[in-house]
Design a protein around this nucleic acid. Structure first.
Length: 895
RNA sequence: AGGCGCGUAGCUCAGUUGGCAGAGCGCUGCCUCGACACGGCAGAGGUCUGGGGUUCAAGUCCCCACGCGCCUACCA
């Protein structure tokens, strides 16, 4: 069998996914164990307009690692994929296409426009589903959903009606965030605040009777045309006498009162605030409190209205600002202008400055929902955030300050609000138009043209995607889901809302755990974004380094922010190659051998390295399982990397090589080969959730890999590593003795190698190795493994005795456990170099000893530290002391 | 303005109940030794940002300072 020297990821990535998918490996139905526990994840549905970016790749990798792991543990596993219709994005995307044909959506009309969006979706939407296949994501495509699917839309209407009937959804004319560019209202979460260098204008409003007046400070002078009051703090002594008096509003001649309101900060500006109820959220509230008129002077296109006066009507808001300032200056009422930095609200999507407007919209009351979510957190600690700090608090403090949610949008693409109006203006909310007609007793209904905020449907995802409001089997089995994995940017937009809706409609939390992934930044620590053009395309990384290497890198990111670096992926690419070549070695020497679980049973007759690797295998399985159960991805990756590379490749393969590559066939050789294959097979299983392609590619080639290795729950399936059992960690098989003995061998070999290197002994040159070990047990360990020692050290001879008998001209080293090793170097040794080498060693030990002695010299340490700590320190001092004495002697004996 | 997080080797980052400071990359030397040069072996490199405190013991817990980042907010 020819196996190439280098791993070619592309080849491994070609066929396996398709086969897995076709054979139904991703669907929970593959599991035939009726008593299997369930594990489920719903994917955060990516936008139908989106294509894969690093954030997706990151989240998908972690979800897939956990899903594959759980599946191998025998869980009935479902990872549900799907997409979000992404109202604004999608509408804009299709509108841009229309523009190329010199059309607007209004030219088509609503119905044809929506048809056009569906057509776009069918032809070019959902790029991401293809890309996810490349990632190796083991999602159950047979359950794929789209938030605009008919059944999910039905769920949306059902929820709307129920909440409306309970009075939680209402329609109201209130001040909202309006985007003059997108021509729709936005929720608070879709508005971003950015710092802005601007000016603060001090405007003088004269008193009605011409005597005195008040100066107000504002960043938006144009809104003064809609002022209906000036407010001061009730406790502000400067203005006591003016409260209740009337001012004459310049440019309009209108008369406006001076009111007292606690909102006003006496310290800021002049302590007097102009009040524009129709164009500022705070002023709106004050207006309500003082029963002030709302004069709309800016329209939905951010142009001044007739109410702003003939001179201003039709002007853009910024032109109007300049003109207002000019007029104030002309009339001497502009007191001063100062530079001022403040934050400005912009549309998250198009970056247009938001205009607060009073508008008729639909709202969802959040108070009760919020209280239930907070109660769940307080009483049951659900959901459990990982990491808990800081996200639990981020979540709860946001909930505590939650305001009602504006759920209507002036768009065409989305779930149209199931509300109809009679010619008399009566509102009918119903699941269908037929139901509405029946209720209204008339057919002359017009449906509300608005659609719902995209997040309104996303918040139902964990149960609507499983068939709610039908009582489906999937809901029974998989709700609540096990864990939600997502980025921190949608904790408010999505996570919290799912919790509230889950509680409201399912009477249960939608997920037990919420794992928040870190963020991948560019090399300079900047967030990756389309506008900055600093994003890194995961597909390019896949092409360059392979999917498995990229996944390993992504998995190791865990929950911290990290700067992207190709170097790290490269090192995991090298790791993949290492796995490839270790397997190649096993396969090249596999004649007569086959995977055999019996070879994984430890027994005292086995060679040290065999007992040792089995112990390491179980320890590793235990550590990886523990790490994954706490979502410690980084820890899991490090453990696997270290086990495979250091333990398995550097030591185990080297130690078993002699037996495995023996010229002549023998029972011993077969046993060694069998064990090597079997340990390798276990290692591949351990790695599979992280590196699905290479592990499958290799596993399929292992002699003896077949159905019988599958987890009992998957017995009827075709052979694949993804359905084998994840290695168990049996603590009984962790062999402390073997690990300690192996440590002694590793120590010995490392020290002699150090001598070889420092004394510049040619790698090809054989050397005699003399070991003196007073400890009988250690002596036994050395002699039992003398063949291995000989081989790894290229020794001409290894002699072991209780006392070291070495020629004067030898390089020496002190061993753990009190032994000593020497390499005779007649004629080769440079005593000066040797002395320096030994002194360096001595200094290291001495500094460690002095630290420990200082510790033990402190009487309080012995008094207060736990006894085992004290003993431990004493033992270490004794050990170091012994080695130091020996070193001294060795140095003294030089020459 | 408040809240939160971070600062560990040249670089990117681990370090979960306080108990011997770690990895990868980079760097130095040696090596075509029959799995792998995307490799092997041996090394160098740290006042854990600074200053106080708690403790027998602090990278880890507390306080202060400096630097960097993130989030929330109704100062016109």
């Amino acid at each position: 069998m020819e196996i190439s020297k280098q791993y070619d990821p592309k080849q491994a990535e070609q066929h396996h996914y398709e086969r897995w998918e076709q054979q139904g490996c991703f669907a929970p139905e593959i599991n035939r164990d009726d008593n299997a526990p369930a594990f489920s994840i719903v994917i955060p549905p990516p936008n139908v307009t989106g294509s894969l970016h690093m954030g997706h790749a990151l989240q998908h990798t972690m979800m897939d690692v956990i899903t594959r792991y759980k599946r191998m543990c025998g869980y009935r596993t479902m990872w549900l994929p799907g997409m979000d219709h992404a109202g604004i994005s999608t509408q804009l995307m299709v509108s841009r296409e229309l523009k190329k044909e010199n059309l607007t959506r209004h030219d088509l009309g609503r119905e044809r426009f929506i048809e056009r969006v569906w057509k776009w979706k069918k032809e070019s939407g959902g790029q991401i589903t293809k890309q996810m296949r490349r990632e190796g994501a083991s999602v159950d495509w047979s359950r794929e959903k789209f938030t605009m699917d008919e059944d999910l839309s039905r769920a949306v209407r059902e929820v709307f009606v129920r909440l409306y009937d309970e009075g939680m959804i209402y329609r109201g004319n209130r001040i909202v965030n309006w985007c003059p560019n997108d021509q729709t209202v936005l929720s608070d979460l879709e508005v971003e605040k950015t710092p802005q260098a601007g000016k603060l204008y001090y405007l003088r409003y004269p008193a009605k009777n011409g005597e005195g007046g008040v100066t107000v400070a504002t960043t938006r002078p144009e809104t003064m045309l809609g002022d209906t009051a000036v407010a001061v703090n009730p406790n502000d002594e400067r203005y006591q006498s003016l409260i209740g008096k009337t001012l004459s509003l310049p440019l309009t001649g209108r008369e406006i009162p001076i009111v007292a309101d606690g909102f006003v900060d006496a310290e800021f500006g002049t302590g007097a605030v102009k009040v524009t109820p129709a164009h500022d959220p705070n002023d709106y509230d004050m207006g309500v409190r003082h029963n002030l008129e709302q004069i709309v002077v800016i329209d939905q296109y951010a142009k001044m209205t007739e109410a702003a006066g003939a001179e201003f009507a039709g002007l853009d808001r910024y032109k109007a600002r300049a003109k207002v300032v000019e007029k104030f200056e002309e009339s001497g009422l502009l007191e001063r202008v100062v530079d001022y930095e403040f934050s400005i609200s912009k549309c998250e999507r198009c970056k247009t400055v938001i205009e607060p407007l009073i508008s008729m919209q639909w709202f969802l009351r959040m108070d009760e929902l919020r209280d239930e979510a907070l109660k769940l957190l307080a009483s049951q600690k659900l959901p459990q955030f990982v990491p808990e700090v800081p996200y639990e608090k981020v979540y709860s403090s946001w909930l505590e300050n939650l305001r009602d949610w504006t759920i209507s949008r002036q768009l065409w693409w989305g779930h149209q609000i199931p509300a109809w109006y009679t010619p008399e203006g009566e509102v009918i909310v119903a699941r269908t138009e037929a139901e509405a007609r029946a209720q209204a007793g008339t057919d002359e209904l017009t449906q509300d043209p608005d659609v719902l905020d995209t997040w309104f449907s996303s918040q139902l995802w964990p149960f609507s995607a499983m068939g709610w409001p039908e009582q489906t089997k999937d809901l029974d089995t998989f709700y609540p889901t096990s864990v939600l994995m997502t980025g921190r940017d949608i904790i408010f937009l999505w996570v919290s809302r799912m919790v509230m809706m889950g509680l409201k409609l399912m009477k249960r939390e939608p997920f037990a755990d919420v794992f928040i992934t870190g963020t991948i930044l560019d090399a300079h620590g900047q967030r990756m974004s389309k506008t900055k053009m600093n994003g890194i395309d995961p597909l390019e990384v896949f092409d360059k380094y392979g999917v498995d290497a990229t996944r390993l890198k992504l998995a190791s990111v865990g929950s911290t922010d990290i700067r992207w670096s190709d170097k790290q992926v490269e090192s995991y690419r090298n790791f993949a190659n290492k796995i490839w070549n270790a397997s190649r070695f096993a396969l090249m020497n596999s004649e007569g051998a086959t995977i055999d679980s019996q070879s994984l049973v430890a027994s005292p007759e086995l060679a040290l390295h065999d007992r040792w690797i089995l112990s390491r295998l179980h320890r590793t399985a235990g550590e990886v399982r523990a790490a994954l159960s706490g979502y410690q991805f980084h820890e899991a990756v490090q453990t696997l990397y270290h086990f495979f590379w250091d333990d398995f490749c550097d030591w185990y393969i080297e130690l078993t090589k002699a037996a495995v590559t023996a010229e002549d066939a023998s029972a011993q050789r077969t046993a060694a080969r069998t064990r090597l294959l079997s340990v390798l097979e276990q290692a591949l299983r351990l790695l599979h959730p992280f590196m699905p392609y290479i592990t499958e590619e290799l596993w399929q080639q292992l002699p003896g890999a077949g159905k019988h290795l599958l987890h009992p729950a998957y017995q009827q399936a075709e052979p694949t590593i993804m359905l084998t059992a994840y290695p168990e960690a049996e603590s009984a098989l962790i062999d402390e003795g073997a690990e300690w003995e192996m440590q002694a061998i590793i120590d010995l070999i490392s020290r002699v190698r150090n001598i070889r290197s420092e004394m510049q002994i040619k790698p090809g040159e054989s050397i005699p190795v003399l070991i003196g070990a007073p400890d009988e047990k250690l002596r036994a360990v050395y002699s039992a493994n003398s063949n291995q020692i000989t081989r790894l050290l290229r020794a001409s001879d290894v002699s072991i005795s209780d006392q070291l008998h070495a020629p004067q001209a030898s390089a020496r080293a002190v061993l753990v456990g009190g032994g000593e090793v020497a390499v005779p170097l007649a004629g080769l040794i440079d005593f000066e170099v040797e002395r320096q080498r030994l002194n360096k060693e001595k200094e290291k030990l001495a500094s460690e000893a002095s630290k420990l002695e200082a510790q033990i010299a402190n009487p309080q340490f012995a008094e207060r530290a736990p006894a085992e700590k004290v003993d431990e320190v004493r033992a270490r001092i004794a050990d170091i002391g012994q080695r130091l004495t020996q070193l001294d002697q060795t140095i003294a004996n030089l020459q």
